[in-house]
Write a protein that binds this DNA or RNA. Structure first.
Length: 297
DNA sequence: AGGAAGACCCGGACGC
DNA sequence: TGCGTCCGGGTCTTCC
């Protein structure tokens, strides 16, 4: 599921392929995914240029040239897909491609394009004749926000783990005096922004710490170990392609490269890669925790 | 106050 | 087949 590595990879792709493009067409298929009446949303967004794309935690922020922002969150199963029109290998307009995908008359297109985006919620046509799909924004969303609204929304978030200022000292400072269990703390966006169920499980495995360990019982040495484990796993995942199942674009064979590297997440009943003990699953803080009870204490 | 628990969003899977 | 129920994760709200 989309967490920091997946969003970071999206952000880099978007900066390479979407930055400085103008939004020429907008189609809102799922009205609940946007925060305005869809006709207003289209009217306002059409014609705007995307000046920059940044990430904060699991949020991706499109900076528009009117000084406002589009904020998107993928939640459970959202995804992005970019389709350059030249890849349709036919003289199709953006409107025709949109219509073809939307009306599920996409068999012709599907035959030419390996990965056709399913369940688009919002579609942007861009000034370079590419089409950007925001798919399955059922729990997720795409919101048009003023600067103050964006700051209010993101202001509650804690440090981003990839922020250069977020070092082991800062991590230890944040944990000082905390009383609860470690995994719910790692996943709380007010503490650290962008760590979800998958990578919190992996980071704890890497540090040899059980998900339900009380923070107060974790030694300073182990807190440093946990910091290193978290940062290294996030960086490795970004380097190897993250764990999204579907590609960002038809040419993208990088995305998903980290899928086979998960050691505990979603692996209950399978053998631990270190000691062969069976990976266990239990509920910690209302969420599924995956762990090896021999490697983690 | 801060930590824990529950609610909510929605679609897909599963059981009867 | 169809209906009801539960599950999943991130975030927000409520409770203790």
């Amino acid at each position: 599921m989309p967490e920091i590595p997946e969003m970071e990879i999206y952000k880099d792709y978007l900066n390479k392929w979407v930055k400085d493009k103008r939004i020429s067409e907008v189609n809102v298929l799922r009205v609940k995914s946007v925060n305005l009446e869809s006709t207003d949303f289209c009217r306002i967004v059409i014609g705007k240029r995307i000046k920059d794309i940044t990430r904060r935690g699991k949020y991706i922020i499109f900076h528009l040239d009117d000084g406002h922002f589009l904020l998107t969150h993928m939640m459970l199963d959202g995804r992005l897909f970019l389709l350059p029109l030249k890849d349709t290998k036919k003289d199709q307009s953006i409107k025709e491609v949109m219509s073809e995908v939307v009306n599920s008359e996409a068999e012709n297109l599907r035959q030419r394009i390996k990965e056709l985006p399913e369940k688009p919620s919002v579609i942007f046509g861009l000034s370079d004749d590419s089409v950007l799909f925001f798919c399955r924004l059922t729990l997720g969303y795409l919101h048009y926000l003023r600067k103050d609204e964006l700051e209010t929304k993101l202001g509650v978030l804690g440090n981003d783990p990839l922020d250069p200022n977020f070092d082991a000292q800062e991590f230890i400072r944040l944990l000082k005096g905390k009383k609860g269990m470690i995994k719910p703390w790692l996943m709380n966006p007010k503490n650290i922004a962008g760590v979800g169920n998958a990578y919190s499980n992996e980071a704890l495995f890497g540090a040899g710490i059980l998900p339900n360990r009380l923070i107060s019982t974790i030694s300073i040495a182990d807190r440093v170990k946990l910091y290193d484990s978290l940062i290294n796993i996030l960086r490795d995942s970004i380097r190897l392609g993250g764990d999204m199942e579907e590609p960002f674009a038809p040419w993208d064979d990088f995305t998903g490269g980290y899928n086979s590297y998960f050691k505990v997440y979603d692996r209950s009943g399978k053998p631990c890669s270190v000691c062969q003990n069976v990976i266990e699953k239990s509920e910690v803080g209302g969420r599924n925790a995956f762990f090896c009870s021999l490697c983690q204490q």
